[in-house]
């Protein structure tokens, strides 16, 4: 009897530990909703989401976050346009074509890329990329949406490469053998048989990259100039993440609440992306 009580006690402890992740997600969600709603109520949902001016410290403050939303969307799209082709092709090379030794070295390099802190990317971006853009494109300031796109493209590479490699390596060998036996060359087999067979996993890799890019704050803050302009390639811009980070330390009142609302919008984006990621991962497993 005593033993049974002890066993259920242990069970209870592990149950609580198991439920902690769920509790954390609930806590984060509830906190963001509770602290994000008041400002949206006061400003008005439509004016908040589609207002084109953010002037939080002006005499008659305006809280329109359309510039941030569009900057985040454009910045992510640009990073994907630059990073996905490179990451995808690198993944095919590493999964199928590379000699073992090259594969070890390059995949090691990719994991180093994943491990470098975002502030280091920001620092190098600030001192190499930003002056480079200024000189190359003859613009007054290189701290721009373009600089952020390039930095994000580099930062999402490891996610795209690693997830794509896993998907490509899971393609049944029979598919490739059949293709080779029918007379296709190895290269044709990789791109016309293996890649289509792994498409769900590759889609998951891309979605994961989107999530990483849209959520990155520090590196972007260091290279994008951080002015609340509507997005344009060579202008200083502010992302959803950096909008929260840059004003939090000195904000108060409605301004502070509006920052929480921005975080709520960002969180909704992330939840959508997570749902998409899960969809692709599940479909990849089923096929």
């Amino acid at each position: 009897m005593k033993k049974k009580a002890f066993e259920s006690f242990v069970y209870g402890i592990f149950l609580i530990l198991g439920l902690i992740t769920v509790g954390c997600v609930l806590l984060i969600t509830v906190y963001l909703i509770l602290s994000g709603i008041p400002a949206i109520r006061e400003i008005g949902l439509f004016k908040f989401l589609f207002g084109k001016t953010w002037a939080s410290t002006a005499k008659t403050p305006q809280f329109g976050i359309l510039p941030f939303i569009l900057t985040s969307v454009y910045g992510t799209a640009g990073a994907m346009a630059l990073g996905v082709p490179v990451g995808f092709l690198t993944a095919v090379y590493l999964a199928k074509a590379a000699p073992p030794r090259v594969k070890t070295v390059v995949s090691g390099a990719v994991s180093v890329l994943a491990g470098i802190p975002s502030v280091v990317y920001g620092l190098v971006g600030m001192l190499v990329l930003v002056p480079g853009i200024r000189r190359f494109f003859h613009v007054p300031d290189g701290a721009s949406l373009l600089a952020a796109m390039v930095v994000l493209a580099v930062m999402i590479l490891p996610s795209i490469v690693n997830v794509s490699i896993t998907a490509l390596e899971a393609v049944p060998k029979e598919y490739e053998d059949a293709s080779l036996a029918l007379g296709a060359t190895p290269t044709e087999t990789w791109f016309r048989v293996s890649v289509p067979a792994a498409r769900s996993g590759i889609a998951a890799a891309v979605v994961l990259g989107v999530g990483r890019a849209i959520g990155e704050a520090m590196a972007v803050m260091m290279v994008s100039g951080n002015v609340a302009n509507m997005p344009s390639l060579f202008q200083s811009v502010r992302f959803l993440t950096t909008a929260v980070a840059s004003e939090m330390s000195y904000s108060s009142g409605l301004q502070r609440q509006a920052l929480f609302s921005i975080a709520l919008v960002l969180y909704l984006f992330i939840l959508l992306i997570n749902a998409a990621l899960n969809f692709f991962l599940k479909r990849g497993k089923e096929s």
Binding site: L27, I214, G215, T241, A263, I270, N274
Partner: peptide, 16 residues
């Protein structure tokens, strides 16, 4: 829930 947690950006962790 665990997958959701690993996808949440660090700035949101900081805020909460």
């Amino acid at each position: 829930a665990a997958e959701t947690l690993s996808g949440i950006p660090s700035i949101i962790y900081g805020l909460v």
